Computed example of a mutant assay.
Amino acid sequence: MFKKITIQTDERGLHFRKGSYVKLLQPGTYRFLPFSEETVTLLNITKPFAVQGKDLKLFLQDEKLVQELDVIQVHDHEYVLHYEDGKFAALLAAGSYAFWNILKKHTYIRVDIRNPELPAEIDSAVLPKLIGSYQAFDVGNHESGVLFYNNVMQRELGPGKYYFWKGPVAVAVKTVDLRQQQMDMTGQEMMTEDKVTLRLNFVCQYRILNPLRALQIKSFEEQMYIQLQLILREYVGTLKLDDLLKMKQEIAAFVLSRLNEKSQEYGVQFLSAGVKDIILPGDIKDIMNTVLLAEKKAQANLITRREETASTRSLLNTARLMDENQTLYRLKELEFLEKICEKIGTISLGGGGNLLEQLNSLLGEKGASG
């Protein structure tokens, strides 16, 4: 009895004698002596070529076998994306691979991961199948990104999503916010020219224009804060307290001008600045309140005297006109009489005659006595 082996259409056989590879067997039926040391390993040609316990190089001497295989060598610094009939099949890391080229068409994209950025020809739909092999970075619409390879700055990145291979090159993306930002200085103690110590609350708005420059400065925000502090100390130290309180707007204009002299150095544009509060020591505040109260009292007294003088002058002018014009005097009497009548309910007059005659008589007697 012979030992019969049948190889199907979608299979290939590898003939071994005493454990050593002999040749490739095509589909068909093969017979071997029952006690011979001939063995056949069957491989499915729809799957990658692999023989357990055997290195691929042992089979590459067979030219007929090699004609039916795609042999791929992937170096340490490479990835190979393997596609079968146009569909992604696998990501091949460093090593040797072989695929049967009989039933399926195999294509490959070879990438050098020493250049970490994923090439444009890799469809984003494939990325979920590559998880663990790449890393992604997001740059927001209001941000600018700066790309680093092994801590060396490469270029600026606009808004978007970026993908990089995990490999020998360490990749980092640092983002910079390009929106308007605010720097607050709160409770900063300063001394005026007349040795008054006060606390100042100051605010400044700015926008980063040069992200690369901003990232080159260590402790970027802290350095700008110190610069603002120095400018304020310089300005406040040249003014007396009274002048400082009168010139709050001038402080903002001066500081903004000086900051913009440093704008290129920091890669920013300073937009606005202003004093929020000037906080005085308690004793100085009490003194200023006392002075303010005295000033207000003096102003009130001055206004009262002016009103009294104006009233007296008005009375004097009225009296002079009435003395010179009897008709005006008579009209004034009637005005006062009208006001008296508004205040009383009834008027009783004695003697004969009607009411109008008695009033005329009363006014006439008063005018004569006057």
Rank of each mutant, 00 (worst) to 15 (best):
Q8D: 04
D10S: 11
R12M: 04
R12T: 02
L25C: 02
T29P: 13
L33W: 12
T39I: 13
T46Y: 00
K47S: 00
P48T: 01
F49C: 08
K54E: 15
L65M: 04
Q67H: 10
I72S: 00
H82L: 11
I102S: 00
N115Q: 07
S124E: 11
L127M: 15
P128R: 06
G132H: 04
G132R: 11
S133Y: 11
S133D: 14
Q135L: 14
V139S: 10
K161C: 06
Y162I: 10
Y162K: 15
Y162N: 05
V173G: 07
K174A: 03
K174Q: 15
L200Q: 01
V203Q: 10
Y206V: 09
R207A: 08
L215P: 05
Q216I: 10
I217Y: 05
I217W: 02
Q223Y: 00
L228G: 14
L244G: 10
A253W: 08
F254P: 14
S257I: 15
E261S: 11
E261D: 12
Y266K: 04
F270S: 08
K276P: 03
D283G: 09
T290G: 09
K296D: 06
R305G: 07
R306I: 02
E307N: 14
E308G: 03
T312R: 09
R313I: 02
L328N: 03
R330V: 13
R330G: 08
E335I: 15
K339L: 09
C341N: 09
G352V: 07
G353N: 02
N354Q: 11
L363M: 12
S369F: 10
